[in-house]
């Protein structure tokens, strides 16, 4: 059982960073809402507060890792230009998609939207983590601030869903392949 290096990095980008981030969303909404409705008088054990902070910082870090690995490692592989005369475009996903009107839309709409919309998430989640760390239970005293934090979290969820969804489809129609093969399991 083998996997190419580029496949492995793509899996790390999509499943390791992106999907883990998506899984953490309901927890983030729960943490922010519970802290806010609990109020400034809500006595939260110090370790719990630290855990909440670590949770939101981890989400922001995952979002940054997802966009940075996507834009600076995987995207260059995706948009590589084939040498003149190349007929096998399997190592050139962008060109492979654009070579047929049936698949061109996956690049023209899918990738072009994904490559930009994903960046809303780390910006939003960094703000959310900062506000939570700064205010904590005092968010209950700042109703409009809590609403903005929850709104930006929801937009971050939407942006990640769009980026992740298109990422999955793009990887189905034109996977990023290449690099040396890594043996995961050897059957004798």
């Amino acid at each position: 059982m083998e996997i190419s290096f580029r496949d492995l990095i793509t899996v790390l980008h999509g499943m390791g960073f992106g999907a883990l981030f998506m899984l953490a969303f309901s927890g983030a909404i729960g943490v922010i809402y519970a802290t806010a409705v609990g109020g400034a008088q809500w006595v939260v054990p110090h370790r719990t507060t630290i855990m909440f902070r670590f949770y939101l910082i981890s989400m922001a870090a995952l979002a940054w890792l997802a966009v940075l690995s996507g834009a600076y490692i995987i995207y260059p592989w995706y948009r590589a230009v084939p040498p003149a005369g190349t007929t096998d475009l399997s190592l050139y996903p962008r060109q492979l998609l654009l070579s047929s009107p049936l698949t061109a839309g996956w690049h023209v709409i899918g990738m072009e939207w994904k490559e930009h919309i994903a960046w809303f998430t780390p910006i939003a989640m960094t703000m959310v983590a900062y506000v939570f760390i700064k205010y904590g239970p005092q968010l209950a005293l700042h109703r409009h601030m809590r609403n903005a934090v929850l709104g930006f979290t929801a937009v971050a969820f939407f942006a990640t869903a769009v980026a992740g969804g298109f990422g999955a489809f793009l990887n189905k129609y034109a996977p990023v392949r290449g690099g040396h093969e890594i043996v995961l399991f050897e059957q004798h």
């Binding site: 400034a40 703000m127 506000v131 005092q138 903005a148």
Partner: peptide, 15 residues
Amino acid sequence: MRLPNGPGAAAILSA
């Protein structure tokens, strides 16, 4: 006891 909302507002508006 209440923190001013300025720092939070700055983070929201800049985002």
